[in-house]
């Protein structure tokens, strides 16, 4: 009796451990999409925001999927659920000879710095940051391209629009007070806000720009709440720079009858209150990086995306832009493109 029992117990235990192996034995060799030897393999690692973030992870994935269908590459994605996943996820792709590993987000700087050094033959693209070394200093590596954006230029244009509207008294409350709600306080967010401050001040020096950070990219409530406070302080145009959290800004603004400005992608469909969006074409940058690997033109170092190369830009929303304002936006766009003016990238207190 005790013998049979033990045997059964052992069987059950082994079953647990063996299940994966059994699966392997009966395997139908269906892994890895049957790539041929010369297919370019690209792996994308999201930050903890995940693919559903309605922000840069999602946009980078769109670029990747576009490359998959247009360039015939093999495209694989891994989501990071915690920061300690970054290095294993990057290594997972690099160790298997992927041609390009794309890391999304400022917070992966040191992970990319680390893994790119261990795998000099694998190319890396890091969105929003340059790689960092073991001491936390920014470094350049021959196999890493940093895709950086001049968010401040897009921020400046929506700032011009806002400032002109305020100056001409065309905003809902004519209050000469506007707001910006950031997600985490990180450089890409601050660039947008700095540009916005500059644009507003250029057109309406008397206007006040309120700035708040939600420390949150996924839960929309804190962003809605920050917007509420800014509205009660008099703000009648609020710029969201907080990804998925910031969508709370747009709807809250809509409810309270003020104007809002979207970020990263055209968000005018999100709410009637969106008068414009400051866009950052992460999907294009991702696609271009993949293409450069495919056609052998990959370059290490930093690739800057700005107004000049249409990497960032201004997109109209649900408010017809008056001709004089459009003229001003166009003229500032040209000045920025020509280098006649430089938009600051640090937020003024």
């Amino acid at each position: 009796m005790s013998r049979t029992r033990m045997r059964l117990v052992a069987l059950a235990t082994c079953l647990m451990l063996l299940l994966p192996v059994l699966a392997a034995c009966g395997g139908t060799s269906s892994t890895s999409g049957g790539s041929s030897a010369n297919t370019i393999k690209v792996g994308l690692v999201t930050d903890t925001g995940g693919l559903n973030d309605k922000g840069f992870n999602s946009l980078a994935n769109q670029g990747l999927q576009k490359a998959k269908s247009e360039l015939g590459i093999q495209a694989d994605v891994t989501q990071s659920t915690k920061a300690s996943d970054y290095v294993p996820n990057l290594t997972n792709f690099a160790s298997r000879g992927y041609n390009l590993v794309i890391a999304v987000g400022f917070l992966m700087a040191s992970a990319v710095g680390q893994v790119s050094q261990q795998y000099p033959n694998v190319k890396f693209a890091l969105i929003d940051s340059t790689p960092a070394d073991a001491k936390g200093n920014s470094v350049t590596r021959s196999n890493v391209t940093s895709l950086l954006f001049k968010e401040q230029e897009a921020g400046a244009l929506v700032g011009i629009l806002t400032g002109m509207l305020e100056k001409q008294g065309k905003t809902p409350k004519k209050s000469h007070i506007v707001g910006a709600v950031g997600g985490q306080k990180i450089p890409p967010v601050d660039h947008y806000i700095a540009g916005f401050q500059w644009g507003v001040a250029k057109e309406d020096p008397s206007a006040k720009v309120l700035v708040a950070y939600s420390d949150e990219f996924s839960d929309p409530t804190p962003c809605a709440n920050k917007t509420d406070t800014q509205i009660s302080q008099g703000a009648d145009v609020v710029f969201q720079v907080a990804g998925g959290c910031g969508l709370g800004v747009l709807t809250e603004g809509g409810k309270k009858g003020i104007y809002t400005i979207g970020v990263d992608t055209d968000q005018s469909a999100s709410d009637q209150s969106v008068i414009a969006s400051a866009v950052k074409r992460v999907e294009t940058a991702t696609f271009d990086a993949i293409k450069s690997v495919k056609d052998g033109s990959f370059q290490s170092g930093t690739v800057l995306f700005d107004l000049k190369n249409d990497g960032v830009g201004f997109v109209k929303g649900n408010l017809p832009v008056p001709a004089d304002i459009q003229t001003e936006i166009d003229s500032v766009t040209n000045q920025i493109k020509s280098g006649a003016v430089t938009v600051p990238d640090t937020v003024k207190p």
Partner: peptide, 8 residues
Amino acid sequence: ISCFGGET
């Protein structure tokens, strides 16, 4: 175990 995707 059962690594078929080129993993180590």
